[in-house]
């Protein structure tokens, strides 16, 4: 399983020789550091933990600093974690993989592990839509616009039966907070890679705002 952490830059389009424009989302991904390798023996499952986004050391808690090996061992604590050339990193995320043993702490991963034509899943946090009605949130059709209707254009309609059930069922689709939740865009084609600038262009849209944090992984269903 290949994985990478990145930042959504925005959307653009790429032309091929036929002049067909492909809509792409450009993501600045990596270079990521492997900050921890989890194996079956030590953790019960296999995964690698990736770190991304250099930041100032003082922005991390002491616990985070220690985890990355940024705190030097002293007499009282001689067994502190060694530093493997990892700087202070803002984001740490785990990628489940069966080949965790091939990685080592401090190793750098870049967009070079992907190539054009690959398919990836991109996960991020969607834009918050606030308190949204049922038409926007669930795609309800709303009411009719004519025939003497007033105030019913975007209403949800009936929310249940009368005294037979006497309840509104749990999970009934109703207005409420929308967005600002994790979403994974699946099976996006990698259109172009720019190893030099750590850019990756995937076909289609990706959840979140410009500058939003995203996780790129091999497509699970391809």
């Amino acid at each position: 399983m290949k994985g990478l952490l990145g930042v959504k830059l925005g959307m653009s389009q790429i032309f091929d020789e036929q002049g067909v424009a492909t809509p792409v989302t450009v993501i600045q991904a990596g270079p990521c550091f492997v900050t921890q390798v989890k194996t079956k023996e030590t953790d019960g499952y296999e995964a690698i933990q990736l770190g991304f986004g250099e930041t100032k050391e003082k922005r991390l808690t002491k616990g985070q600093q220690g985890h990355l090996g940024l705190v030097k061992p002293d007499q009282k604590h001689p067994n502190r974690r060694k530093n493997h050339g990892i700087p202070a990193l803002r984001f740490l995320r785990e990628i489940r993989t069966r080949t965790a043993a091939e990685h080592s702490v401090g190793q750098q991963l870049t967009v070079a592990q992907f190539e054009a034509g690959d398919h990836v899943d991109v996960a991020g946090k969607t834009k918050g839509r606030g308190f949204a009605g049922v038409v926007k949130r669930y795609g309800f059709a709303g009411g009719v616009k004519t025939h003497g209707q007033s105030d019913r254009h975007r209403a949800p309609g009936s929310i249940g039966a009368t005294s037979g059930t006497a309840h509104v069922f749990k999970g009934k689709k109703m207005p409420g907070r929308m967005g600002n939740e994790r979403f994974t865009a699946q099976n996006l084609e990698v259109v172009r890679i720019d190893v030099e600038r750590n850019l990756i262009a995937v076909k289609g849209s990706v959840p979140g705002t410009k500058g939003g944090f995203v996780i790129i992984q091999d497509a699970a269903k391809k």
């Binding site: 925005g10 653009s12 389009q13 790429i14 450009v26 720019d194 600038r197 850019l199 262009a201």
Partner: peptide, 18 residues
């Protein structure tokens, strides 16, 4: 938004220079 010495919008354009 700056990423390294690049401005985000420039990066977008430069990546797909025509």
């Amino acid at each position: 938004l700056f990423i390294g010495e690049y401005r985000m919008s420039d990066l977008l354009l430069k990546a797909f220079d025509n």
